[in-house]
Simulated assay, not measured.
Amino acid sequence: MTTRPQGASLTAFELLLDIDRRCRLLVADQPFDDSPLQDWSGIGFRIGGQWFVAPMGEVAEVLREPRSSRVPGVRPWVVGVANLRGRLLPVMDLSTFLGLGPVAAGKQRRVMVLDHDDLFVGLLVDEVLGLQHFPLGSLQLAPPQPLLRSAARFVQGHFPGEPDVPGERTWAIFSPFTLAQAPGFIDVAL
């Protein structure tokens, strides 16, 4: 180890090493918690009046509705094709696909990007409410009631809201991966 003259400053790397050493000393005194996670997390979104949550690993990203170009000869739920960082992103109106009519115009509209196997597609929804966390013990495997009938085959359970708490919602667990495998979803040609 080299000795440094009195008053000489540390290099940036030496400062980082010192910060790392001090952080490790602070953490060493903390109790270790190896209990499994007790929360389930997903991306909350709304279609019409129904609240859904998609599992974290099934949504690659969420973005504002990109400008897209219409594609002739496709099903009504295909909004168009957008350029997302040099990659073509087909944008599908999830509400129209489910038979509810087009997503309402507004600033809250968002696109949830699904990047699964060979499928890269954006799902246009009314609103994305960000990351939602639920106690794993509250998971109900049955679909919630009421539920959009056309969405039932993509729903894998729900997290019920507290009936005594104003504004509490029931969240249906919507699987974009199941949607991607549904016959007819990617068969968009007329």
Rank of each mutant, 00 (worst) to 15 (best):
S150C: 15
A105H: 09
P5T: 03
P146M: 04
R70V: 04
F174N: 08
D20L: 14
I43Q: 10
E65G: 02
R24F: 04
T96D: 08
F45A: 05
L94E: 00
Q145E: 13
P31K: 03
P183L: 12
G122M: 01
F185S: 04
Q50G: 05
F32M: 15
F177H: 15
R46L: 15
L16K: 14
Q140A: 12
P36G: 03
D126Q: 05
G86P: 06
V165F: 08
Q140G: 09
D39S: 10
V78S: 01
D29H: 15
F134M: 03
P66S: 11
L129W: 08
P146G: 02
Q30P: 06
S69A: 14
P135R: 09
D18W: 07
L131V: 07
G167R: 05
L15N: 12
M112H: 03
L26I: 13
L119W: 12
V188R: 06
L63A: 10
R110H: 12
D117N: 11
P5H: 10
L136R: 14
P176Q: 06
I43E: 11
L136C: 10
L123T: 05
W40A: 13
A172Y: 05
L100F: 01
Q132W: 07
P72C: 01
V74D: 00
V81H: 00
S35R: 09
D33Q: 09
G80R: 00
A60P: 03
E14D: 07
V27H: 09
S35V: 08
Q140W: 08
L98N: 04
R22H: 11
L88F: 01
P102L: 02
G99N: 02
R87W: 02
S175G: 07
Q132I: 08
T96A: 08
R149Y: 10
F45K: 06
Q30D: 08
V165L: 14
C23Y: 11
R46I: 15
V128H: 04
Q38F: 13
P66R: 01
L98Y: 01
L100Y: 01
G130L: 04
H116E: 12
K107H: 10
R67N: 03
G86I: 11
N83M: 00
D33F: 05
A180K: 02
D93S: 02
R46Q: 15
D117C: 13
F159S: 08
K107M: 06
S69Y: 00
A151C: 11
A182S: 15
E14Y: 00
G122N: 01
P72G: 00
I43R: 14
L124P: 00
G137A: 09
P163Q: 11
V79E: 00
A82M: 00
G106Y: 05
R87M: 06
L147G: 02
R109C: 12
E58K: 01
S138H: 09
V155L: 01
R70L: 06
G106F: 01
F97R: 03
R24G: 07
R70K: 09
T178R: 11
R110V: 03
V113C: 10
A189E: 15
S138R: 06
Q132T: 15
R70H: 03
G161Q: 01
Q156R: 12
G86M: 14
L89N: 00
G161L: 01
T170C: 14
T11P: 05
V121I: 14
V74Y: 01
G7S: 10
A151E: 08
R149E: 15
G99F: 04
I47D: 09
D164R: 14
L129R: 13
L124I: 03
L98C: 07
W40K: 11
D33V: 15
